[in-house]
Design a protein around this nucleic acid. Structure first.
Lengths: 212, 212
DNA sequence: CGCGTAACCTACTCCGGGTAAGTTACCTGA
DNA sequence: TCAGGTAACTTACCCGGAGTAGGTTACGCG
């Protein structure tokens, strides 16, 4: 079998085994056996168990970028960019639930290198998001954009995890929760009608517009 | 040394070593040695390496609950509850940065049991948050509260991580980003003045109030 | 048909989690 | 004051799985 084909196969099998057993309890012997090769071949191709995991993460990262970018490309306005990106994200996670659940739940578990690869994936998605935010709210300071991007990245991750335990929640539902929260937060649900507060608090709740 | 004292000491040392080396590269031999005892003592007290990590997580979980609850107790209105809770959270994470960074960054890495303990911590904080949200926006459906709670939990986690690389961002700054985002999202920064949109989109961006 | 190379295997080493069995030290009560 | 029980503690080991040294097959090419 050619190098490229073997590599793909090994990644497929590794993704599967890591997903089934978890990183720690997955053995290189089992992965090798399921590939129909011997252990040293895995080391020839990926260097170490960590290296194999990192390769899996990187492949998923590339696939996710592709899916998100493609979805965003068709958008008309910045609002639609975020919406489409979110739908694509939640759809992707649902479709790759096995391997992705593992990447979401047992990430840094492996090694600094693997943690870094997962962080790089977050940074990649964060770059797409902050671009959309900057286009949508051009007046916002860079640090605000950064902070909100972090919130969205972390929030999406958690929402995706929450969604796995609620089959009735569709990718569109999740995307709607996320984008609604981004645009307006809780203001549509407030008892008092101060949802359209004109400014942003600058020194804690007592200094803000809501509680003079 | 008494059982209780020894246990505390072991948790302190374990937290330190896990924080320094990371879970995987921390050896039970080293932890034992730094405690001035032999390895079987660790197993006597905590059963396994996982068990030791889980005990660390559970202790942090209890401390975090205490810090958050205490802070929230002094609040007047629901808005202030969330604000104080957030400040307490970011302050706590900053103060316990060593062990907490490890809990944030190498969480599930260890075992299903450790992953569960971290999930339980998130659930604990989520319960506090959803309580505050429900009080603040009594009209919101339960699923919306749940979804937003997930976003806030994940967003806070990511924001705390982001903050560690930005020493100039204070706990109050982080809390302000978080609560601002919760109350109004991006709407204060929008170019168009539709920040006070009255309703919530129900079928994607093209069906919402903003883009008829 | 020789020969180089690249895919591949057998058979190990070694480290670290985990344990069996025993030893010291202290408190208790008669 | 000393048997005896118990609880903190140790040495010395097992064993599974990550990682490796060195050799073998198989195929393309002149």
């Amino acid at each position: 079998m050619s190098r490229a084909d073997r590599e793909r196969q090994m990644l497929d099998v590794a993704e599967e085994v890591f997903g089934e057993r978890g990183y720690r309890d997955a053995s290189m012997d089992e992965i090798a056996e399921r590939c129909g090769v011997s252990k040293p071949m895995l080391y020839e191709y990926f260097g170490s168990k960590d290296g194999l995991l990192v390769a899996c993460v990187r492949r998923s990262k590339a696939e996710l970028l592709d899916a998100t970018r493609t979805a965003m490309a068709g958008a008309s306005d910045p609002e639609d960019v975020l919406w489409r990106g979110m739908v694509a994200y939640f759809t992707f996670v649902a479709a790759h639930s096995r391997p992705f659940a593992m990447l979401l739940r047992e990430p840094a578990a492996a090694s600094p290198a693997a943690a870094e690869a997962v962080e790089a994936t977050r940074a990649q998605q964060g770059a797409l998001i902050s671009g959309a935010l900057a286009a949508f709210a051009p007046g916002a300071p860079a640090e605000v954009i950064d902070a909100f991007t972090q919130i969205i990245v972390g929030g999406s991750e958690r929402l995706a995890h929450w969604k796995t335990q609620r089959p009735e929640v569709s990718a569109e539902d999740a995307a709607r929760y996320m984008t609604d929260f981004c645009w307006s937060g809780l203001s549509p649900y407030l008892r008092r009608e101060d949802g359209g507060r004109s400014g942003v608090r600058t020194s804690g709740p007592s200094g803000g517009a809501g509680t003079p």
